[in-house]
């Protein structure tokens, strides 16, 4: 009966994951390996293809609305203002051709790109929050502790969720409609060029563990339920919840990967690497805030990064 409970928990979290995250690993890997046939992503590898990228998105009509049809229009415009955005002149619009030609200088380009990444990240934080709320027992925790768990967990979760979208050559963006090459990201001016490299390095190694979507769901819940986040008021119930999810994850890995030795241990070790990546990422953002005159940080991300590490 205990194993049955753990299986039920895994199933529940997998369903919550599918409900809240529009691009699954299964779908992303299908796109990356060219199994989607006529729906191949548009490749951005230089400034010219970047400009054409928007045209591509406009012609295609974004499938976001299918996923998010239950949300208000307001939300949809926040979504489309991201990299997949067709909203020209939006504050966060990056692929908007008009804004590129109007503002001209290459310098502003990285900032605009950075802003559209922020928009998508903020939306992802909302998705992660909804996922967290579906973890059994999470909503019953002290509200201040829920905030702390999210504050410290979301960037780690974001980075883990990027891994399935990446391979050694680049990353899917805009809900899998666009593939942006690693070389292009590296060619942006400093420090923007340094932002993604550590994530590529981490992702290539993480992907070697070959987790599926149900295991990803459990791992994300484990990360969120970290009892050692600074400032937690009531650690015990968080640790108890995490322990149950850890058992479920361990069982799931044994069933799905019977010949992969120590996979559970290897996965837990990734959490150490992850914390270092987040610390470096936050420091880079804080540096950007100081050095870039025109930079504005999205209010939600600002809230999360304030006094974080």
């Amino acid at each position: 009966p205990e194993a049955a409970d753990l299986r039920a928990l895994a199933r529940h979290l997998y369903e919550a994951y599918l409900k809240n995250f529009p691009l699954t690993k299964a779908k992303a890997r299908a796109i990356l390996s060219g199994k989607t046939g006529d729906n191949a992503p548009f490749v951005i590898h230089d400034m010219k293809s970047l400009m054409e990228g928007e045209q591509f998105i406009n012609c295609r009509q974004i499938p976001l609305k299918e996923h998010h049809h239950h949300h208000q229009q307001q939300q949809t415009s926040a979504l489309t203002a991201g990299l997949g955005g067709a909203h020209q002149g939006s504050e966060y619009g990056f692929l908007g051709m008009t804004s590129i030609s109007e503002e001209g200088p290459q310098d502003a380009l990285e900032l605009r790109f950075f802003h559209s990444c922020q928009s998508r990240s903020a939306e992802a934080v909302r998705e992660i929050t909804e996922f967290a709320k579906s973890i059994p027992g999470f909503s019953e925790l002290d509200l201040n502790d829920q905030v702390t768990l999210l504050k410290y967990g979301v960037i780690e979760v974001l980075i883990i969720m990027m891994a399935p979208l990446m391979n050694k050559d680049g990353t899917l963006i805009s809900y899998g409609q666009i593939f942006m090459t690693r070389e292009f990201l590296k060619s942006l001016r400093k420090p923007f060029s340094q932002m993604m490299e550590p994530k590529f390095e981490f992702s290539v190694k993480f992907n070697m563990l070959e987790l599926d979507d149900s295991e990803m769901a459990l791992f994300l819940a484990v990360i969120i339920l970290s009892g050692d986040r600074p400032g937690l008021l009531n650690v015990k119930p968080i640790e108890q919840l995490q322990e149950t999810v850890l058992h479920s994850l361990e069982l799931q890995l044994k069933l799905n990967h019977p010949i992969s030795l120590q996979l559970f241990a290897k996965l837990l070790q990734k959490m150490t690497d992850l914390r270092q990546i987040v610390t470096d990422h936050v420091h880079l953002i804080q540096l950007l805030k100081k050095t870039e005159v025109d930079m504005c940080l999205h209010p939600l991300l600002q809230e999360i990064m304030k006094d974080l590490y």
Binding site: H71, E123, T129, L143, V147, K151, L300, E303, I304
Partner: peptide, 20 residues
């Protein structure tokens, strides 16, 4: 609490989305 206003809102509202 004021420091994490949006996170609080996201945690407490399930249907009405915060204007991100």
């Amino acid at each position: 609490k004021e420091k994490h206003k949006i996170l609080h809102q996201l945690l407490q509202n399930s249907t009405s989305p915060v204007d991100l």
